[in-house]
Computed example of a mutant assay.
Amino acid sequence: MAGIAGRGTRLGWVINLSVLALVILWLIPTVGLLVSSFRDRDQISETGWWKAPFAVEQTYRARVDAGGAVAEGTGFVITGNVFEAAGVGSGQVTAFGVTGRDPAAFAPGDMAELRGGGMLTVAGDGSFRATSPEEFGRRGPSIYFQAATPPKFTLDNYRRVLGADAMDRAFINTLTVTIPATIIPILIAAFAAYALAWMEFPGRGLLIAAIVGLLVVPLQLALVPLLSLHYKVGIGQGFLGIWMAHTGFGLPLAVYLLRNYMAGLPRDIIESAKVDGATDFQVFTKIVLPLSFPALASFAIFQFLWVWNDLLVAKVFLPSTDEAKVMTVKIADDLLGSRGGDWGILAAAAFTSIAVPLLVFFTLQRYLVRGLLAGSVK
């Protein structure tokens, strides 16, 4: 009875749990990126995203205003709160010090000797009292302290990304690059795939093998020679050049995917159309192309995502001016800087840039599996 069609296998629950585990593992980096996009920059540098709901222990430096000193007995006293002086809101002081080399030398409530003379004490709630037998001078003492501050979630990262200069121009440039770089290889590959699938000519097998071989060639090897060729033919760095580059890099996969799908179409339909007098062009445009829409949509998703998220090819084939920068280059050059260590900005930029690809994916995702599985079974 276990082999009857429609019956579940005994290991069905194992398969379901395995799929669930894979989905969770796949979502963990995305969830971490989403959480980091709303976190404060300083807290990101101290703890991982999984500790975002908990207090973060950080070291701060507070400069005390000497103008608040008042005479008391034979000396002068300054009182206040280290959180207000450091501009960090509120928290719980866990240790303090009078030098940057040892910011946690004293526990809250202890008395510490100031370097210029006098004493300092800091309470757990951040209130401090600094005393000196002489006036503090123009600059008050510096207080170093460690404090457990509550978690901070902010929209500043998104405001910085969306409010960056010329970001709207970069968004338009990204669409200008991505849409033609997706359509052009589909148009070329569709004709080539039909010819390889349904037309007989010498060397067809070798041509198919060459296309499969091109799938494993790293595009990094072709960047410099291709850019040199662009300058020789007169297109140089510009939108036309990057359209041609993405077309060349995307054609092997497109031809391979579409050829497998078209070769699996019913032969009777093609032969009946040719018996009725249809030309190859008519068969291609009126029969093969409409039936191949799932494969076309599958490649369109891959190509759109690849071109939209591309940084390397855009850096090579586009000028470095603001008028030609796409979103990935704009984020990498102007927002992250040379070191790229601002994780909050990077996370917010990532979620801002994936809005359009997600729209494309969910619009065409029903065709994705059908197109990828084309030609796998008969």
Rank of each mutant, 00 (worst) to 15 (best):
Q146T: 14
I143K: 02
L162G: 05
I184T: 03
V161D: 07
A170S: 15
Y158W: 08
Q146N: 14
I186Y: 05
E200L: 13
D168L: 15
I172G: 14
D168S: 15
I186P: 07
A148K: 11
P150M: 01
W198A: 11
L155C: 00
I184D: 01
Y194K: 14
F171L: 15
T154R: 06
G163H: 06
L196Y: 06
D165P: 10
T182F: 03
N173Y: 01
I172V: 15
M167H: 11
A166V: 10
T154M: 05
P185I: 07
E200Q: 15
I184N: 07
I188L: 13
T154L: 07
G163I: 02
L187M: 09
T176K: 15
D165L: 08
Y144L: 04
E200P: 13
T176V: 15
I186Q: 05
I184A: 09
A166E: 14
A164V: 00
Y194C: 09
A195I: 09
R169Q: 12
P151R: 04
L175R: 08
T149R: 14
Q146Y: 12
A190D: 00
R169L: 09
P151D: 01
D156A: 12
F191Q: 14
T182M: 06
M167F: 14
R169C: 00
Q146K: 15
Y194R: 13
F145M: 01
P180Q: 00
Q146E: 12
A148C: 01
Y144N: 02
E200T: 15
A170V: 10
L162K: 11
E200G: 10
L196V: 09
T149C: 00
I186N: 05
A181Q: 03
T178C: 06
T154F: 03
Y144G: 04
P151N: 02
P185A: 09
D168C: 05
Y194G: 12
D168G: 15
T182A: 11
V177R: 08
I172S: 14
V177D: 11
Y194T: 13
I143E: 03
F145N: 01
F171W: 12
L155R: 01
R159N: 07
I188M: 07
L162C: 02
N157I: 04
P185L: 09
R159L: 11
V161R: 02
I172C: 11
M167W: 14
N157D: 04
I184L: 14
L187S: 06
P185M: 08
A148R: 12
R160C: 00
L175Y: 03
M167L: 15
D165T: 13
A193M: 08
A164Y: 02
A197C: 10
